[in-house]
Design a protein around this nucleic acid. Structure first.
Lengths: 226, 226
DNA sequence: AGTTGAATTAACTAGTTCGTACATTACTCT
DNA sequence: AGAGTAATGTACGAACTAGTTAATTCAACT
């Protein structure tokens, strides 16, 4: 039996007193472990990541990892959950109401493009989780209900576009989400093999603008055709 | 010092005599190891796959794996190389010359769609290799020169389409290849997390036709716009 | 038949890796 | 101040894993 885990969120009122001291700061210890673990898991996969290595890169010890997260799997799940929680804010940023449908869908595409580019760790974690057929993610209790907003934003854009009779009506919001994600994820996730096999770095900064507009064009042209 | 590895391809004339007997068949032993290893690596990742487990699922022993492939990495690379070699035949099947550009690019899209759907192992291996930043693949000596045909087929289609003035001219063959692959790969690779998060199985057989035409439409509409 | 070398098998080893038992320190509340 | 609890450090071990040593079997050739 391990000691009972502490309260995950015991008040956000972190006393700003004594910045220099670092002892006894569970909040910070927890998040520091998660930060390091995110990097290690995304770089080495679940089996490839080493608990000892994660501990070594932290200012705490391995004991703390087990104290807070119980097991390697528990830590991995916590990393996944935090990563998914981070992404949910994306779709909310789209200014759906004040843009016409075409501009809105293009903005959504570009926001997704930017977000994925700046969160490669998340994409790798998702890839790793898919190798394991999402069996860890399936056990998460905080995940459900995290995705509705993402889809409903797209749904509203589609509805408006159809009301104006400029969007095709044989796809739903999830299809569009998939289409955009596929493009953005592939560019990040398959960067290395693509470069090795075809000799082109999809993340070359000179190509960034090209691929960004290419994505927007692709989605818009597809939706407005017919 | 290990014994020198045998000739990888010493004649394909397998004597059909004595089907029942299985002793002393290096050709077969080798390929059986590769078959099992492909499954194990794609299911568990490089670090997660167990050499003992691979050996156990074969009719040979672990020593044979080291005899033929030298190391776990050597086996993994051999698996990768064989998987990539399998895929190269795809683009050759497109009937570029006898179809108009639009029909040709649609056929290519659908062939890619079908191929990826029937080779999930390959896609998972590529994903795993990307987690390791393609460092294993980079050491392959048989890989270079395997990808040109794939791209040149698309290049010829694009050229014809532009000669007829029906294709846009701000993308090259690699871009189109990327666009098609992204869609097909995402559908397979992210199947599990997508289903867990959004509750839709991208590989549901009832959705297959929908996504297949969606891909073709997407590529064609994009290329023919403007 | 006898020799040679490739193919195969079983048992072993040296090094990791996750997880824990136990001891200790800091903080909080009365 | 003192008791009780939360947080942390150290050291260790049981289980596992990649890779090896060494002995054995088989097939082909002379």
């Amino acid at each position: 039996m391990t000691a009972p885990p502490p309260d995950p969120d015991s008040g956000a009122d972190d006393a700003p007193a004594e910045e220099a001291r670092r002892a006894r700061d569970p909040q910070r210890t927890r998040s520091e472990i998660l930060d390091v673990a995110t990097g290690e898991f995304s770089a080495n996969g679940f089996a490839g990541a080493r608990v000892d290595e994660i501990a070594a890169k932290t200012r705490t010890t391995k004991r703390m990892i087990y104290y807070y997260f119980g097991s390697k799997q528990g830590l991995y799940l916590a990393v996944l959950e935090r990563a998914y929680a981070t992404i949910r804010s994306l779709e909310q940023q789209v200014d759906v109401e004040h843009l016409d449908p075409v501009a809105a869908i293009r903005q959504l595409s570009e926001l997704t493009f930017d977000h994925h580019e700046s969160h490669p760790d998340f994409i790798r974690l998702v890839g790793i989780e898919n190798i394991h057929e999402a069996k860890h993610l399936a056990e998460s209790e905080v995940l459900p209900g995290l995705s509705q907003p993402a889809v409903s934003v797209i749904g509203r854009i589609l509805d408006r576009g159809r009301a104006e009779d400029i969007f095709r009506d044989d796809v739903d919001a999830l299809d569009v989400h998939m289409m955009i994600s596929a493009f953005c994820v592939f560019r990040i996730a398959n960067r290395y093999t693509f470069n090795t096999v075809f000799g082109r770095d999809l993340l070359d900064s000179r190509l960034r603008g090209h691929y960004r507009t290419m994505l927007g064009d692709m989605v818009v042209e597809y939706l407005t055709s017919r």
